[in-house]
């Protein structure tokens, strides 16, 4: 990702505050169109939007790996032990 140039327009600060809501599709149609008009004219804000999209994509793609095998084995062993013990405990409680 490349860092965009510094904010150069007072409107940019205003639009930057709404970029996440734009990204998440939460803006009203009129606000969305206003941002899209601004993005066409402002490479600075367009770069910020692109890098925010990349940041979100990295979280989605890289944030949730499988459990490492050793951790998974311990997790499975705990589940098996709990489910083995539980019926005996319920029987004793009766």
């Amino acid at each position: 990702m490349t860092r965009p140039p510094a904010v150069h327009d007072h409107r940019c600060a205003e639009f930057l505050q709404s970029l996440s809501r734009y990204l998440d599709g939460e803006l009203a149609a009129a606000d969305r169109r206003a941002i899209e008009r601004h993005l066409r004219e402002c490479p600075c804000c367009e770069d910020v939007l692109d890098s925010l999209k990349q940041t979100v994509a990295i979280c989605h793609e890289e944030g949730r790996p499988e459990l490492p095998p050793a951790v998974r084995r311990r997790a499975r062993a705990r589940v098996s032990a709990l489910l083995r013990q539980a019926p005996r405990q319920r029987a004793r409680a009766r």
Binding site: R3, L19, R21, L52, T55
Partner: peptide
Amino acid sequence: VKTRLHRARLLLREELE
């Protein structure tokens, strides 16, 4: 949550860069 998320994305973006 929305306010924090926006700020968090910006901070994370800076760190990743």
